[in-house]
Design a protein around this nucleic acid. Sequence first.
DNA 1: TATGAATGAGTTTTCATTCAT
DNA 2: GATGAATGAAAACTCATTCAT
Lengths: 199, 199, 199, 199
Amino acid sequence: MQENNKIDNLKYKAASNKALSRDELIIESALKLFSKLGFENTSMQLVAKEAGVSKGNLYNYFNSKDHLLESLLAHWAKKNIELYSSGLNYGLKSVDDFENLVRYNFKLIKSDKYFWKLYYNLAGQPSVNKIFMKVFYPFKMKYILGFSNYYKHKGIENYNAKATLLVSAIDGVALSYIMMINNEYPLNEVLNELIKQYK
Amino acid sequence: MQENNKIDNLKYKAASNKALSRDELIIESALKLFSKLGFENTSMQLVAKEAGVSKGNLYNYFNSKDHLLESLLAHWAKKNIELYSSGLNYGLKSVDDFENLVRYNFKLIKSDKYFWKLYYNLAGQPSVNKIFMKVFYPFKMKYILGFSNYYKHKGIENYNAKATLLVSAIDGVALSYIMMINNEYPLNEVLNELIKQYK
Amino acid sequence: MQENNKIDNLKYKAASNKALSRDELIIESALKLFSKLGFENTSMQLVAKEAGVSKGNLYNYFNSKDHLLESLLAHWAKKNIELYSSGLNYGLKSVDDFENLVRYNFKLIKSDKYFWKLYYNLAGQPSVNKIFMKVFYPFKMKYILGFSNYYKHKGIENYNAKATLLVSAIDGVALSYIMMINNEYPLNEVLNELIKQYK
Amino acid sequence: MQENNKIDNLKYKAASNKALSRDELIIESALKLFSKLGFENTSMQLVAKEAGVSKGNLYNYFNSKDHLLESLLAHWAKKNIELYSSGLNYGLKSVDDFENLVRYNFKLIKSDKYFWKLYYNLAGQPSVNKIFMKVFYPFKMKYILGFSNYYKHKGIENYNAKATLLVSAIDGVALSYIMMINNEYPLNEVLNELIKQYK
DNA sequence: TATGAATGAGTTTTCATTCAT
DNA sequence: GATGAATGAAAACTCATTCAT
């Protein structure tokens, strides 16, 4: 569980950026709305209003709606990928490392529901697929690789397939959890099961 | 593998309805476009053009875009749910039954990529969440229940959690497979792994 | 009050036409809807549905929406003008004749609210002004003339102006009565006053 | 006749606002067209064109056609009700007051034909009845009350009925005058008669 | 005569984006 | 940087009317 603390410290630093710059403010507002209404159903007008900024001024920071989205994703990635993947950087060296990483990831997902709702909104949206892939493909590959190495070291034969399956399963669990309206998804039980099965 | 054949026969019958009625034609066109462009980015105009029908006439068949979507999903469900879930109806009685069902499901998904792309497009779209849930929630529950019973009979303790995890994993695999552009996703390997793990 | 009975008999005859021909049926349906929704806001579709007739068939009877309106008005006029103006045909020879006619007119208006709502809907609609005038201008002129003669015989100086004012006043009272939603208009009191003043 | 002058001064001031703000310009254009073509038959497109403004921009000022209408009426009311009812504010204390008020009202109606045509267009339009009533019902009630008090002070028994009749008669006269195409309506004679009768 | 599918122009409304201030 | 008026293209939807059957 030490790992966990290390990661929590990182989180703490990230969260302590109190004063938001204007563009961060716009991004936060956009995230909130894109997440709630979907990207296509959120107008720039609304983003401006939410951010307390004029419509015209939006375009001084982001020169199109697509660019705003791209920046949002990039900004999120910059702030969070370290968090999400820090456990991977030094390799997963034990079952505990594995469990910590997975649990920690879902902890982050839980605390960042806005973002993950948007994530799955975009994942299925052909029109923004490129923007989406540009940011998340490398990230997902890094994850698969991390788990792949873990399984390889454990001497598991189809380490690649197993890692790919695991990442897809995590995706599926997160999707189901995020999309379920009344918090009906039994995340904890499923998570225990997942760890038991994949560790 | 007999099961498989039975199901394939059903599929064959369904596919052999050659002459499409006008509303089916519209639905097919809508599916194609919703799938390619996303629901929000497909205009009724475009659906009409694709179906070779005037915009106004569309509304003689479906009185709104949402209703078109709902009908599309319902139509798909009517034609396919039997296919997808027939393996569940008499219970999964053996590991073979399990494997057949899962493999068969992915076979169907592979051959119905249009639809499944739309499925994951809608899954993340808050604006149509109700329509989506109305059709697919009961379907997914039936699946979870089917697997749950399977695990229960096998004497597995957390049969519910395991079934839920499995269905989420299937979702995740399908999502990844469907969204990957260049068919890069190693579906067969992942599928083998999944069956090995969950059977 | 004998007059009244004579007129009521006429009314009775008119009302006893039980079996409506197809075009009358359409006209009745149109009247009902035009009255409730306004002419512009009633679609031919809706008229067809209300009449239990197909949209296409409507056009076998009336070759346009305007023509349907014109026919409706003409049909009403044919059936009702006799009723409304019968009191005028032999001249108003006494104060009783006057009172009977006016009261009788409002009795008819009360029992024909549908029509009069449409009447005032059309009266202010520039787009159908011609159709409207074509039917009602002569009718109104006949009324003014009738009252004009009445006042002339009574030796009143400005008999024309007085008759015109009376007819306008009747119009105004009927308009207010018809348009008032909750039957708030004190029709009886106003009518008594009108008769006292103009007889 | 002093009263009259006071009121004329007010009118003069109101009319001397030369430079129209953009929303006033739109309202003026809408009034012109609604009046000429009827509310239902005037498209927002046309209003935009008449105002020399883009269709989209219209919606920066009024967020729907109904709202444009409501604003138009409210704007008119704000500018004019004082004018129309100023004679009532201090009570009608003499026959002269009465005559002045009525004549002055028709003077205003004559000079504001656009508006009054729209008024009677809306009066009969069920679809906008609520908007219409919201603005004019209180105004009309104030009028009835004003005349009611006048008759009460004169010791007339059915002062309420008489006032209601008068206001309806004024409505009827105005309606007839406004709707008559070739200025055939003998307004002056009718007005003299009305004043003689109701003063 | 009867049907209702089909049309296409029209309606209200939205929205990303630009631009003068 | 900041504003919000302005634009124009496009969206969903309606409707009088026509026409093949």
